[in-house]
Amino acid sequence: MNPLRILLFPWWLAELATGAKAFSDNPLIGSPLLNRWGLHVGRVRIAAALARSRRQRLSGLISAEERAAFERDGFVMKRDFLPPQEFARLREEALSYRGPAREMVQGDTITRRMALDPAALDAMPGVRTLIRSAKWRGLMRYVGSFDSEPVGYIQTILSHVNDREPDPQTALHADTFHATVKAFYFLTDVDAEEGPFVYVPGSHRMTPERLAWEKERSIRARDGLDRLSSRGSLRIRQDELASLGLPAPKAFAVPANTLVVADTSGFHARGPSVRPSIRVEIWTYGRRNPFLPWTGFDLLSLPGIAERRANWMWAARDRFRAWLGQPWRDAGIKTPAAPAAEDVGG
């Protein structure tokens, strides 16, 4: 046996008690034999039970109607989230903001992100008020199942910027095997044919059918599935949904000033766009170790730390690019809706 594998075994074993998800990176997580015996499904079951327990303790943060919508669908949608005049001011503030941007090219699509760091929040007091409001914080915490501060950005999706293959995010997938939260607060209207967010209602529930699907996928994930599935973000075809007792995906073709907060362990995607388009949103996400029994005690949520995490993560990838990789290139100073750079052609 390779001595390095012996040295790494304690690390691989410890990762079983964390959110580590890549079947291709950890020979225990990716072991077909262990997953036939139920390793992956066991992690899914435990994580789901702990998420339910944490949400029960956070249930007072949102209304009974919102809780019922989430339990049924896996997401909460709020149209007209802000009063019209307040939204108009926030939208103008956000779309006119100029700041450091990062971009990632996936297929024919660019995702642009501008961190909601201290400088950005000072320049956009309306955005700061929004993400610190009780309504926003309550939904993020309940859906994510942790009393933790999410990481926030202004995010822009620019579709059909080159002639490459389709955006891989248009394939239905689960982000990971456990509860995790993403929020989309749309600053622009979203057309049904211009890459709307898509979610399969009810797919956040770990039903017997879903667990059987997870087990079958986990056995083949290391070597027999696509690259992103082997990395732990399992893909599913739309024609498979009925066998899991799930409906067709719902596309969020919605007006600006709509908020969607979703558990992205459920199946979701970026809808296909039939033409070049730009979608701008305030986008936040939260993901913690799913095996923690408590809801809080998150040092990364402390003021002065929480709003700097995005830049720290980018800086770490810049510095250790050879080991961590860095898909987010520095795109300079931009406004959120600035057109794509000329050097992203096919």
Rank of each mutant, 00 (worst) to 15 (best):
residue 173 H to M: 11
residue 175 D to I: 04
residue 180 T to M: 08
residue 180 T to L: 05
residue 182 K to F: 04
residue 184 F to C: 05
residue 185 Y to L: 15
residue 186 F to V: 06
residue 186 F to C: 11
residue 187 L to V: 06
residue 187 L to Q: 09
residue 187 L to I: 08
residue 188 T to Q: 03
residue 188 T to V: 08
residue 189 D to H: 13
residue 191 D to N: 13
residue 195 G to Y: 07
residue 196 P to Y: 02
residue 197 F to Q: 01
residue 198 V to R: 13
residue 201 P to Y: 00
residue 202 G to P: 01
residue 205 R to D: 12
residue 205 R to V: 14
residue 206 M to L: 06
residue 207 T to M: 04
residue 209 E to M: 03
residue 210 R to N: 02
residue 210 R to A: 07
residue 213 W to K: 00
residue 213 W to M: 01
residue 214 E to R: 05
residue 214 E to N: 04
residue 215 K to W: 00
residue 217 R to Q: 15
residue 218 S to Q: 07
residue 219 I to T: 13
residue 219 I to W: 07
residue 221 A to T: 09
residue 222 R to C: 12
residue 224 G to I: 09
residue 225 L to M: 14
residue 228 L to S: 12
residue 229 S to Y: 11
residue 229 S to K: 06
residue 230 S to K: 12
residue 232 G to Y: 13
residue 232 G to M: 11
residue 232 G to A: 09
residue 234 L to M: 14
residue 235 R to K: 13
residue 237 R to Y: 01
residue 237 R to A: 14
residue 239 D to M: 04
residue 240 E to R: 00
residue 241 L to Y: 02
residue 241 L to P: 04
residue 247 P to K: 04
residue 249 P to V: 02
residue 251 A to S: 12
residue 253 A to I: 04
residue 254 V to E: 01
residue 254 V to H: 04
residue 254 V to T: 04
residue 261 V to D: 10
residue 262 A to Y: 06
residue 265 S to Q: 12
residue 265 S to G: 01
residue 268 H to Y: 02
